[in-house]
Protein backbone atom coordinates (compact mmCIF):
# COMPACT_ATOMS: atom_id res chain seq x y z
CA UNK A 1 0.00 0.00 0.00
CA UNK A 2 2.82 2.41 0.92
CA UNK A 3 6.38 1.97 -0.31
CA UNK A 4 9.45 4.15 0.18
CA UNK A 5 12.37 3.33 -2.15
CA UNK A 6 15.69 5.01 -1.28
CA UNK A 7 13.83 8.15 -0.26
CA UNK A 8 15.69 11.23 0.81
CA UNK A 9 14.11 14.59 1.40
CA UNK A 10 16.16 17.73 1.45
CA UNK A 11 14.21 20.97 1.94
CA UNK A 12 15.10 24.09 0.06
CA UNK A 13 17.24 25.58 2.80
CA UNK A 14 19.35 22.42 2.78
CA UNK A 15 17.53 20.89 5.78
CA UNK A 16 17.83 17.14 5.40
CA UNK A 17 14.57 15.71 6.77
CA UNK A 18 14.80 12.10 5.56
CA UNK A 19 17.80 10.07 4.56
CA UNK A 20 17.75 6.94 2.37
CA UNK A 21 14.47 5.60 3.75
CA UNK A 22 13.30 2.16 2.57
CA UNK A 23 10.09 0.74 3.95
CA UNK A 24 6.87 -1.00 2.92
CA UNK A 25 3.53 -0.89 4.66
CA UNK A 26 1.02 -3.44 3.51
CA UNK A 27 -2.70 -3.10 2.98
CA UNK A 28 -4.65 -3.18 6.22
CA UNK A 29 -1.65 -2.67 8.49
CA UNK A 30 -1.67 -0.53 11.60
CA UNK A 31 1.69 1.17 12.03
CA UNK A 32 3.18 3.73 14.41
CA UNK A 33 5.81 6.20 13.28
CA UNK A 34 7.78 7.56 16.17
CA UNK A 35 10.84 9.61 16.94
CA UNK A 36 11.82 12.87 18.60
CA UNK A 37 10.51 16.11 17.27
CA UNK A 38 12.35 17.20 14.13
CA UNK A 39 13.10 13.58 13.23
CA UNK A 40 11.12 13.76 9.97
CA UNK A 41 7.74 12.22 10.91
CA UNK A 42 5.61 14.94 9.38
CA UNK A 43 7.79 14.95 6.29
CA UNK A 44 7.31 11.19 5.98
CA UNK A 45 3.52 11.63 6.01
CA UNK A 46 3.61 14.59 3.61
CA UNK A 47 5.50 12.47 1.11
CA UNK A 48 2.73 9.87 1.18
CA UNK A 49 -0.17 12.15 0.27
CA UNK A 50 2.04 14.20 -1.99
CA UNK A 51 2.14 17.46 -0.16
CA UNK A 52 5.87 17.04 -0.74
CA UNK A 53 7.86 15.17 -3.36
CA UNK A 54 10.99 13.17 -2.54
CA UNK A 55 14.30 14.80 -3.44
CA UNK A 56 15.70 11.36 -4.24
CA UNK A 57 14.03 7.98 -4.58
CA UNK A 58 10.37 7.11 -5.05
CA UNK A 59 7.27 7.03 -2.91
CA UNK A 60 4.46 4.76 -4.03
CA UNK A 61 1.08 5.01 -2.31
CA UNK A 62 -2.02 3.13 -3.35
CA UNK A 63 -0.10 1.86 -6.40
CA UNK A 64 0.77 5.34 -7.57
CA UNK A 65 4.22 6.80 -7.85
CA UNK A 66 3.76 10.26 -6.38
CA UNK A 67 6.37 11.79 -8.68
CA UNK A 68 4.53 10.57 -11.74
CA UNK A 69 1.18 12.04 -10.69
CA UNK A 70 -0.06 14.83 -12.94
CA UNK A 71 -1.50 17.96 -11.31
CA UNK A 72 -5.00 16.97 -12.27
CA UNK A 73 -4.65 13.50 -10.80
CA UNK A 74 -3.64 14.78 -7.39
CA UNK A 75 -7.16 15.48 -6.05
CA UNK A 76 -8.41 11.98 -6.85
CA UNK A 77 -5.26 10.51 -5.37
CA UNK A 78 -5.75 12.47 -2.14
CA UNK A 79 -9.44 11.60 -1.87
CA UNK A 80 -8.45 8.04 -0.98
CA UNK A 81 -6.18 9.20 1.83
CA UNK A 82 -7.57 10.61 5.06
CA UNK A 83 -5.18 12.89 6.90
CA UNK A 84 -5.29 14.18 10.46
CA UNK A 85 -2.95 17.16 10.27
CA UNK A 86 -0.73 18.11 13.14
CA UNK A 87 -2.13 21.65 12.95
CA UNK A 88 -5.67 20.34 12.19
CA UNK A 89 -6.19 22.49 9.08
CA UNK A 90 -9.85 23.17 9.73
CA UNK A 91 -11.61 25.80 7.62
CA UNK A 92 -11.79 28.73 10.02
CA UNK A 93 -14.87 30.44 8.71
CA UNK A 94 -17.02 27.34 8.55
CA UNK A 95 -18.77 25.60 11.39
CA UNK A 96 -17.80 22.14 12.55
CA UNK A 97 -20.72 20.69 10.62
CA UNK A 98 -19.79 22.59 7.47
CA UNK A 99 -16.19 21.45 7.77
CA UNK A 100 -17.31 17.83 7.66
CA UNK A 101 -19.97 18.37 5.02
CA UNK A 102 -17.48 20.20 2.82
CA UNK A 103 -15.30 17.09 2.62
CA UNK A 104 -18.27 14.92 1.79
CA UNK A 105 -19.20 17.26 -1.03
CA UNK A 106 -15.63 17.30 -2.28
CA UNK A 107 -15.72 13.54 -2.27
CA UNK A 108 -18.90 13.58 -4.31
CA UNK A 109 -21.39 12.16 -1.85
CA UNK A 110 -25.07 12.73 -2.64
CA UNK A 111 -26.78 15.56 -0.78
CA UNK A 112 -29.24 13.26 1.00
CA UNK A 113 -26.34 11.42 2.59
CA UNK A 114 -24.38 14.40 3.92
CA UNK A 115 -26.26 15.25 7.11
CA UNK A 116 -26.53 11.76 8.53
CA UNK A 117 -22.95 10.89 7.70
CA UNK A 118 -21.62 14.13 9.19
CA UNK A 119 -23.48 13.56 12.45
CA UNK A 120 -22.40 9.94 12.50
CA UNK A 121 -18.67 10.83 12.51
CA UNK A 122 -19.17 13.72 14.90
CA UNK A 123 -20.79 11.26 17.28
CA UNK A 124 -17.80 8.91 16.88
CA UNK A 125 -15.51 11.61 18.29
CA UNK A 126 -18.13 12.73 20.81
CA UNK A 127 -18.65 16.23 19.48
CA UNK A 128 -22.05 16.12 17.79
CA UNK A 129 -23.34 18.80 20.18
CA UNK A 130 -20.71 21.26 18.95
CA UNK A 131 -21.77 20.98 15.31
CA UNK A 132 -22.72 24.64 15.02
CA UNK A 133 -19.55 26.07 16.56
CA UNK A 134 -16.64 27.55 14.69
CA UNK A 135 -13.19 25.96 15.11
CA UNK A 136 -11.90 28.95 17.09
CA UNK A 137 -14.64 28.33 19.68
CA UNK A 138 -13.24 24.85 20.38
CA UNK A 139 -10.33 23.79 22.55
CA UNK A 140 -7.22 22.32 20.94
CA UNK A 141 -8.35 18.82 21.85
CA UNK A 142 -11.79 19.38 20.41
CA UNK A 143 -10.37 20.78 17.18
CA UNK A 144 -8.16 17.73 16.99
CA UNK A 145 -11.18 15.45 17.30
CA UNK A 146 -12.94 17.35 14.52
CA UNK A 147 -9.85 16.88 12.36
CA UNK A 148 -10.02 13.16 13.15
CA UNK A 149 -13.72 13.03 12.31
CA UNK A 150 -13.03 14.70 8.99
CA UNK A 151 -10.28 12.23 8.12
CA UNK A 152 -12.50 9.25 8.95
CA UNK A 153 -15.67 10.41 7.32
CA UNK A 154 -15.34 8.45 4.09
CA UNK A 155 -13.43 5.44 5.45
CA UNK A 156 -10.36 6.13 3.30
CA UNK A 157 -8.00 3.47 1.97
CA UNK A 158 -5.16 5.03 3.93
CA UNK A 159 -5.42 7.00 7.15
CA UNK A 160 -2.47 9.18 8.11
CA UNK A 161 -2.52 10.86 11.51
CA UNK A 162 0.14 13.32 12.64
CA UNK A 163 0.31 13.41 16.45
CA UNK A 164 -3.46 12.87 16.64
CA UNK A 165 -3.48 12.60 20.42
CA UNK A 166 -1.04 15.43 21.08
CA UNK A 167 -3.75 17.60 22.62
CA UNK A 168 -5.88 14.90 24.23
CA UNK A 169 -5.89 13.60 27.77
CA UNK A 170 -4.99 9.91 28.22
CA UNK A 171 -8.57 8.56 28.44
CA UNK A 172 -9.63 10.33 25.30
CA UNK A 173 -6.42 9.27 23.58
CA UNK A 174 -7.30 5.65 24.20
CA UNK A 175 -10.78 6.18 22.86
CA UNK A 176 -9.40 7.72 19.70
CA UNK A 177 -6.95 4.85 19.31
CA UNK A 178 -9.85 2.44 19.63
CA UNK A 179 -11.55 4.37 16.88
CA UNK A 180 -8.49 4.03 14.66
CA UNK A 181 -8.41 0.31 15.34
CA UNK A 182 -12.05 0.04 14.39
CA UNK A 183 -11.41 1.82 11.09
CA UNK A 184 -8.37 -0.40 10.60
CA UNK A 185 -10.44 -3.51 11.14
CA UNK A 186 -12.64 -2.43 8.25
CA UNK A 187 -9.64 -2.48 5.91
CA UNK A 188 -8.13 0.98 6.14
CA UNK A 189 -4.35 1.09 6.34
CA UNK A 190 -3.47 3.24 9.35
CA UNK A 191 -0.22 5.11 9.93
CA UNK A 192 0.10 7.21 13.08
CA UNK A 193 2.97 9.54 13.85
CA UNK A 194 3.41 10.02 17.58
CA UNK A 195 6.03 10.42 20.23
CA UNK A 196 3.74 9.03 22.91
CA UNK A 197 5.79 6.02 24.09
CA UNK A 198 3.13 4.84 26.55
CA UNK A 199 0.59 4.64 23.80
CA UNK A 200 2.91 2.67 21.54
CA UNK A 201 3.72 0.27 24.35
CA UNK A 202 0.06 -0.36 25.10
CA UNK A 203 -1.01 -0.82 21.51
CA UNK A 204 1.68 -3.37 20.54
CA UNK A 205 1.73 -2.53 16.87
CA UNK A 206 4.42 -2.40 14.25
CA UNK A 207 6.55 0.68 14.95
CA UNK A 208 8.87 2.61 12.65
CA UNK A 209 11.43 4.74 14.43
CA UNK A 210 12.82 7.89 12.86
CA UNK A 211 15.91 9.66 14.14
CA UNK A 212 17.46 12.56 12.29
CA UNK A 213 15.87 11.32 9.10
CA UNK A 214 17.13 7.73 9.47
CA UNK A 215 14.53 4.99 9.74
CA UNK A 216 14.82 1.94 11.98
CA UNK A 217 12.21 -0.66 12.61
CA UNK A 218 11.21 -2.45 15.80
CA UNK A 219 8.76 -5.23 15.21
CA UNK A 220 6.84 -6.35 18.26
Amino acid sequence: MIHFFHVSKVYEKGNRALHEVNVSIGKGEFVFLTGPSGAGKTTFLKLIFREELPSYGRVVANNQNTIALGKRQIPDFRKKIGVVFQDFKLLENRTVFENIVFILKVLGYPASFLRDRAFYVLKLVGLQHRYNDYPRQLSGGEQQRIAIARALVNEPLILLADEPTGNLDPDLSLEIMALFEKINSRGTTVLIATHDREMIKQMRKRTLHLDHGHLQEHRK
Binding site: P75, D76, V83, F85, K89, L90
Partner: peptide
Protein backbone atom coordinates in the same frame (compact mmCIF):
# COMPACT_ATOMS: atom_id res chain seq x y z
CA UNK B 1 -5.11 29.15 3.61
CA UNK B 2 -8.54 27.69 2.91
CA UNK B 3 -7.59 26.95 -0.66
CA UNK B 4 -4.53 25.00 0.48
CA UNK B 5 -6.59 23.01 2.97
CA UNK B 6 -9.21 22.18 0.37
CA UNK B 7 -6.54 20.92 -1.99
CA UNK B 8 -4.87 18.85 0.71
CA UNK B 9 -8.11 17.04 1.43
CA UNK B 10 -8.58 16.28 -2.26
CA UNK B 11 -10.90 18.99 -3.59
CA UNK B 12 -10.88 19.26 -7.38
CA UNK B 13 -9.72 22.54 -8.84
CA UNK B 14 -13.19 23.24 -10.19
CA UNK B 15 -14.58 23.08 -6.64
Amino acid sequence: NDIAIMQLVGADMKY
